[in-house]
Design a protein around this nucleic acid. Structure first.
Lengths: 388, 388
DNA sequence: TTGATAATTCAAATGAATTGAGTTAATCCA
DNA sequence: TGGATTAACTCAATTCATTTGAATTATCAA
């Protein structure tokens, strides 16, 4: 991942494309909305919006949803996204497995699949991904010809960095142009990202961040990741490796943040107590019976998490920090309710419109669904906010 | 500062505006450039660029700079920004003074001024600012009618936050729409920002970040601030208060980062040793003679700074971290050369195109000049890069 | 000297949004 | 109940900015 200089001038064709996406974004955002309202939101004429909506309806992206009368005047015909108007593929590549999910235009999963991986060589992985895609199309034939693209999540960091080789890097992928390889294997546009970024985008499509444009997402993977969204767009950093929050040192804790807050951390802690956390369900069971060892870990982890949230708040000033990832709902909820957030933070504002810490999507497929959300976010060009 | 939903559709007029700015950005970036090259960079036709350049020349924004022959073919007429084609006012409001600077289109200061403030009530401050502007126009009459806008720097954080009242907030400004008041007082578009953000933007206009689109700026003010630029744009956060890095706790140090690294910190430290740091020059003198108390402070500060840089790197993955602000050149250089940067960082990459830590602009007027740079950056719409 | 290459210009065409007039369908109010 | 008002929507003509295609100019290279 490198930086390519790129700046495009505007012409009629690109304007149309942009306006189409903006209209789709308004429709997604509102759920159902009339043309005149879209026109006002985008500073376009109703005539223009009419033309675009006719085109989008023709293309099967929009559905009429009756008329809505609001006070005087002719009631506006409401339009909504046609869920079957477009599909996005989400792929998550892990050291031991590949997950796949096909999402419709409104972000609902149509098919999901998990395949265990014998090896992570590019050829093996790409072969499995092509198969997953083929099976998804078979199970959901209406998606054929309506694919918007694929989001691919791989363990970061990408490229050669000072923290490479520390975690779960995939062997054989350091030196290749992964995005291009994926695009070739499944013949559609591909966006590559890490798990935290993907999960963050998923919240924007149909999760806890639907009304937010600047927020942070703390993601429980093997370690702890951070996804940053600013002005509706991911903050990926110059080389695509922004958000490596797990590696920063935390006062109080002995070492890195993710030594205290991560799946590996709880596994280590519980293992030392002679208990085995095989997967999310096992963790859920221990939490269900309020296992004292787990509760002790949660206490320590909460403290470190509070520190992390405060750092993120002071550096980004987000609308909220969302906590999610490969953890049981109940554990995430426990963190949200039991984490003491430092009062010395720019986010500790009176009358804040959002709680400072909220729960996002959870479960094993979070990042996979998020991968597809990367594509939907682009296709829908969701409305943004501007600080003023 | 609040979030306003805003998304604009595109039409012919807005396309033209956008293209004009993009052309200006290309010219700024290249120094001197021909039409065909601009057209290629922006994916426009040469004809379009020709039209725009004719218009911009007509408006006095561009100057012809002869022809440049590169191999075969007709040599391209080179165009450069006309420094007198536009001006930006920079205003910095401090608890005890107001600084003003008038910059030309290429970012060079034309006039600068410092006025001490008896009080910080809005009326007093606004009156002084109107006077500063009037005097600037008198000293540089060619700027009359060519003002692009004004950038205003005020001590953050803005609005009510958990760290308000801690530092140097201005009394009487918490409840007002500062941007609107300024805009009314000097009758031009105003952009409001904190010192670190402004200083960061200045580096992009004609400083150390001219070839960068994603970088972080650590700013020495009274405390320590962070300016984040991503994809050529400031990351301001949801409420405009991103970058409050001074308030985060640092392992090793006793309290907050800016207890160890800031102007107040060195003043306190030297005061305890019976030495008085009145201003930058005094500090420079102490450094010149390698005062042992100062060197001791520098050692501690360097350690904390290294921690801060590493946090910023792991969270943002910038092309580089720039160190600047109200410190003597020599002290900043000392930090840059003597700070040990943790190897456990995404930015510790082999063959990195930039050093991880570099020195930016220094001196008392850094933020003031940066305030004006906020306007220039917008007017020039500098080329951005995209991660790929 | 001549052919290749590339920048530039001119005039016409194109694409998309806007404008302005007119229609439809609801609410408001007497 | 019925006219006035409000607002969404449509149609046709216009406007704006970019693109297209043909022609011109200026340099390099063989």
């Amino acid at each position: 991942m490198v930086l390519l200089p790129l700046q495009q001038g505007s012409n009629a064709e690109r304007s149309r494309h942009r306006n189409r996406q903006a209209v789709l974004g308004q429709v997604h955002n509102a759920g159902a909305i009339g043309r005149a309202e879209i026109a006002r939101a985008l500073s376009l004429t109703t005539q223009t919006v009419s033309n675009i909506i006719a085109e989008l309806s023709q293309d099967g992206m929009l559905l009429e949803k009756g008329r809505l009368s609001v006070g005087r005047g002719q009631p506006a015909i409401q339009y909504a996204l046609n869920p079957e108007g477009g599909y996005a593929l989400g792929i998550e590549v892990r050291p031991d497995a590949v997950f796949g999910a096909l999402l419709d235009l409104v972000g609902r999963p149509v098919t999901t699949e998990r395949v265990t991986l014998p090896q992570t060589d590019p050829e093996i992985v790409l072969g499995h991904i092509a198969d997953i895609y083929a099976r998804a199309l078979k199970a959901a034939p209406m998606a054929r010809g309506r694919m918007l693209g694929a989001g691919v999540v791989m363990p970061g960091p990408f490229g050669l960095t000072g923290i490479a080789g520390m975690g779960s890097d995939l062997i054989g992928w350091q030196e290749v142009d992964a995005e291009a390889l994926f695009a070739e294997a499944i013949e559609m546009p591909v966006v590559l990202s890490n798990d935290a970024n993907a999960a963050a985008m998923a919240e924007r499509i149909n999760g806890a961040a639907q009304d937010m444009t600047s927020y942070a997402y703390l993601y429980f993977g093997a370690g702890l990741g951070l996804g940053l969204v600013h002005g509706g767009q991911l903050v990926r950093g110059a080389y695509g490796n922004a958000g490596e929050i797990g590696h920063i040192p935390i006062p109080g804790a002995h070492g890195k943040l993710e030594d205290a807050v991560s799946r590996l951390s709880v596994q280590r802690h519980m293992h030392a107590a002679g208990k085995d956390i095989r997967d999310i369900n096992a963790l859920d069971a221990f939490f269900d019976r309020r296992d004292p060892d787990l509760m002790a870990w949660l206490d320590t982890a909460s403290d470190a998490l509070g520190q992390a949230v405060s750092i993120v708040e002071n550096l980004f000033d987000p609308q909220a920090v969302i906590l999610g990832g490969a953890m049981p709902d109940a554990v995430l909820d426990h963190f949200v309710t039991h984490t003491t957030l430092p009062s010395l933070s720019v986010s500790n504002r009176p009358n804040a419109p959002h709680p400072r810490l909220i729960r996002g999507a959870s479960g094993r497929m979070t990042a996979t669904l998020g991968a597809a959300a990367l594509i939907l976010n682009r296709a829908l060009s969701l409305p943004v906010s501007h600080a003023h």
